[in-house]
């Protein structure tokens, strides 16, 4: 289980996460929702070790990883698909995948190429010459070859064509089937609810609602209350 207890994170003098408490069961998909600026990305960055909490504890399977360096956290089995299709621009597709390759991963480079044939076509091209969609696939593929136990996904469908969204959906399902823990930050409510077992909604650096995804999906008032939108996509007012 991944546990966050009383996490306080600051950007300089800015208090961004306030005593954040949440948990994710192993093997489940948690959708982390909330309006822009609620602190969702900051939470993922803190779990990955890119930010250090000033107070509070992060635990994985009981082990305190609150102040671990991100290399160590990565080697523990955490992987991040960061916001904005983050890849290594000057490395080729093959190199992007190669340096992340973990020999114990159930997914090899070949498996990734099978999932994303467009990447195989472009395997020796520099990553910054790829389209946005291809970069997103590369980012996902890179996370797969790490063979993670916990995958952190930050808005994977943002700005993506429907075909890519579909592909991403398949990948997350595949991960879920393999028993991998996933924390999914998403603005696309329908996408998130169709994959998640549980939902946590953040506002102003805290978790303000937690519950089963089915519950949340079924009760439109909850969606409207916490997010200002419902799954019909209509803005109902803030």
């Amino acid at each position: 289980m991944l546990e966050l207890e009383g996490i306080d994170v600051f950007y300089g003098p800015s208090h961004v996460l306030h005593a954040l408490t949440a948990h994710v069961e192993e093997g489940e998909v948690l959708a982390l929702l909330g309006r822009s600026g609620a602190g969702k990305t900051t939470t993922l960055k803190t779990v990955m070790g890119w930010l250090r909490p000033r107070a509070g504890r992060i635990r994985w399977r009981g082990q305190d990883i609150s102040h671990w360096e991100s290399v160590r956290i990565a080697r523990l089995g955490f992987a991040m698909v960061a916001q904005g299709r983050r890849v290594f621009p000057s490395l080729s597709v093959a190199e992007n995948l190669g340096i992340a390759l973990n020999p114990t991963s159930p997914w090899s480079l070949e498996d990734v190429y099978q999932l994303f044939p467009r990447l195989e076509e472009r395997r020796y091209q520099a990553a910054n010459t790829l389209s946005g969609g291809e970069q997103q696939m590369l980012s996902l593929g890179r996370a797969l070859v790490r063979g993670p136990r916990v995958l952190l996904l930050d808005e994977p469908t943002e700005g993506m064509a429907p075909a890519i969204v579909q592909l991403t959906h398949q990948v997350v399902e595949m991960l879920r089937e393999a028993g991998i823990t996933v924390v999914l930050v998403e603005q696309n409510l329908a996408f998130a609810l169709s994959l998640a077992a549980r939902v946590a909604v953040m506002n102003k650096g805290q978790v303000v609602y937690e519950g089963r995804a089915q519950e949340f999906a079924a009760h439109r008032e909850l969606q409207v209350q916490y997010l200002g939108v419902s799954t019909t996509g209509l803005r109902v007012g803030s």
Binding site: E69, A74, A79, I99
Partner: peptide
Amino acid sequence: RAAVDDRELAEACGVD
């Protein structure tokens, strides 16, 4: 080269 490109991301990929 990856670390020169994006140090944070490299660490998250297990590069020391």
